[in-house]
């Protein structure tokens, strides 16, 4: 069978992530399982949960990133959420009593950072506000719970996170303006 080649010869080598992903997944799984086994054998605090979460974070953020909506806002929020979970895990499993302040700092820091990212490429990024809205709502709910539980001893970081989340939500509403109903409909549509 004689083939007449009618396509250009690819100039660049085609790279695929599949093999790298597979090798990394395997390596990370082995490391995760090994850490659990060692942790069980050695006993003591459940540090392997932190190790496993760290491995998942690295895998999800670098080796197998999102294929849809891989934009600066979503990625920043994803890193923030993963980091907060890591901080809470360290607080719960290793050294307690400091997570509320640090998580609050991460939250309001990310809210400020994401707003900067939004306004430095406003025309494009205003279509990616859903993760920001969700993150602001989570921050608001979280800080409100802390307010209710610790009426008198609320630290400044929580107050800043609470206020900033409200400010960000108002800002999002202003950006969406009359289009708010449309934005909400498309985000929550079930059609």
């Amino acid at each position: 069978m004689k083939i007449d080649y009618t396509y250009p010869v690819p100039e660049k080598k085609i790279r695929t992530r599949r093999k790298a992903q597979y090798v990394c997944l395997l390596a990370f799984a082995v490391l995760g399982i090994a850490s659990i086994i060692v942790n069980i054998c050695v006993g003591g605090k459940a540090w392997s949960a932190i190790a496993c979460w760290g491995l998942f974070m690295v895998y999800s953020l670098t080796i197998s990133p999102d294929v849809i909506e891989f934009n600066r806002i979503r990625q920043s929020v994803k890193i923030a959420v993963y980091s907060c979970i890591m901080i809470i895990l360290i607080d719960r499993l290793l050294v307690s009593g400091w997570a509320v302040g640090v998580v609050s700092i991460v939250c309001f820091g990310v809210l400020i950072g994401v707003c900067v990212l939004l306004y430095t490429d406003f025309e494009r990024q205003r279509h990616n506000m859903l993760p920001l809205i969700i993150f602001a709502v989570i921050t608001l709910v979280g800080s409100s719970i802390i307010f209710i539980n610790q009426k008198q001893d609320v630290i400044w970081q929580v107050i800043v996170a609470f206020s900033l989340s409200i400010a960000v939500l108002i800002e999002c509403l202003i950006i969406m303006k009359s289009n708010f109903k449309n934005e909400i409909t498309k985000i929550f549509h079930v059609k």
Binding site: P8, E69, L130, K186
Partner: peptide, 24 residues
């Protein structure tokens, strides 16, 4: 393509849509 809470959706994008040379 965008992500909603329950389903993906298609959001209108105003941009310069590009015609490219074939890559092979």
């Amino acid at each position: 393509v965008k992500k909603g809470i329950f389903w993906h959706y298609l959001e209108t994008t105003k941009r310069r849509y590009v015609a490219l040379p074939d890559t092979g």
